[in-house]
């Protein structure tokens, strides 16, 4: 058991995956000598060489498009997109090629590519550095999408994503890279990648989050407990496939659900979860499913980002509304 940051947990996970399988490559802008702008790949090029840790030209479509060719040659590329807002030049390659080649080839071509994207806001950045584009990838058949929320998951989920024969969009909550520190047992048996997890049990309402909003939900549950409310919190972990079994089970007990994400509200994960929970748990619901999310505006300038992001107060307000319905 070692205490480490999420950044270190990801670094250790990548290192372990590269040791386990020499077909695993890391590629992206500045991932080599520099170790990535967030230092997630720190030291990997020194230890594995520049054939396996590849500093690429500054072109995201090129990075993902060449990863497709490397995968066809039998490699398992782990691509780093430097920031969420810079993934769009690669969008065509991700949506039209990475996602569809298995289907197009009737399963003959596998795309074991992991696309790591630091996502979400709260770091005081300039435009294009704080976005949450997950719904666009969840909406794309052929991709799998996961988001880690803590160092222990980061360590295991990155290895499980790399071991997957399907392409995985791997979302890392960048504001937790160095603020989230926790004990990581590298020898522990990890839970399956495609499962959500109850991270706090409760009986009055259910909060669902993923990535950066899990800690917000846990904070809200702690404050609510002081007011005598028992809140269950679920970390989705996997956004596609979506594992709502534990959410349905929870809502059947609590009758109340609030979904929290930083992404825009309209057609976000909350909308999909509300639709499915309504279908599966209609007679258990005591109140409409509520969403707390980023507003349907472009991400604001950083001096006012706290007003945009779902924070403790907005989550607690939603809890008040669902309980008081």
């Amino acid at each position: 058991m070692t205490t480490m940051t999420m950044a270190k947990a990801l670094n250790n996970g990548l290192r372990r995956a590269m040791e386990d399988d020499d077909k695993v490559l890391v590629m992206g802008e500045d991932v080599g000598t520099l170790g990535g702008v967030f230092r997630i790949t720190d030291g990997l090029q020194k230890d594995f060489g520049d054939d396996r840790v590849i500093d690429t030209p500054l072109a995201e479509s090129g990075i993902v498009g060449t990863a497709v060719g490397l995968a066809m040659r039998g490699y398992r590329p782990v691509v780093e997109i430097q920031f969420d807002g810079f993934v769009y030049p690669a969008y065509d390659q991700i949506v039209c090629q990475v996602a569809k080649l298995h289907f197009r080839s009737q399963g003959r071509i596998k795309m074991p590519i992991v696309i790591r994207i630091p996502f979400g806001g709260g770091i005081g950045a300039v435009e294009h550095h704080s976005e949450s584009p997950e719904a666009q990838f969840v909406h794309t058949p052929g991709l799998k999408v996961v988001a880690c929320s803590n160092p222990a998951d980061a360590y295991t989920m990155i290895q499980q994503a790399i071991a997957s024969d399907d392409p995985v969009i791997f979302l890392e909550p960048k504001r937790l890279y160095y603020s989230a520190k926790a004990d990581v047992d590298e020898a522990a048996t990890p839970p399956p990648l495609w499962k959500s997890q109850v991270v706090r049990t409760g009986s009055d309402a259910t909060l669902v989050g993923y990535g950066p909003t899990v800690s917000t939900c846990l904070d809200a549950a702690a404050v609510a407990a002081e007011e005598g409310r028992s809140i269950e919190v679920i970390d989705l972990r996997t956004l596609s496939p979506l594992d709502l079994g534990p959410v349905h089970e929870s809502v059947r007990r609590t009758g109340r659900l609030v979904v929290v994400h930083e992404a825009h509200m309209t057609l976000g994960m909350g909308a999909e979860i509300a639709a499915r929970v309504t279908e599966e748990c209609f007679h258990s619901l005591e109140a409409p499913v509520l969403r707390v999310g980023g507003y349907d505006t472009p991400y604001p300038p950083s001096r006012i980002e706290e007003a945009y992001l779902p924070d403790l107060d907005r989550v607690l307000d939603a809890v008040d509304r669902t309980v008081g319905f």
Binding site: I54, T66, V68, G69, L70, R73, Y75
Partner: peptide, 12 residues
């Protein structure tokens, strides 16, 4: 799109 796949394959 395939010109990038070819280049990646060649890198392999």
């Amino acid at each position: 799109a395939q010109t990038l796949h070819a280049t990646g394959y060649a890198m392999g």
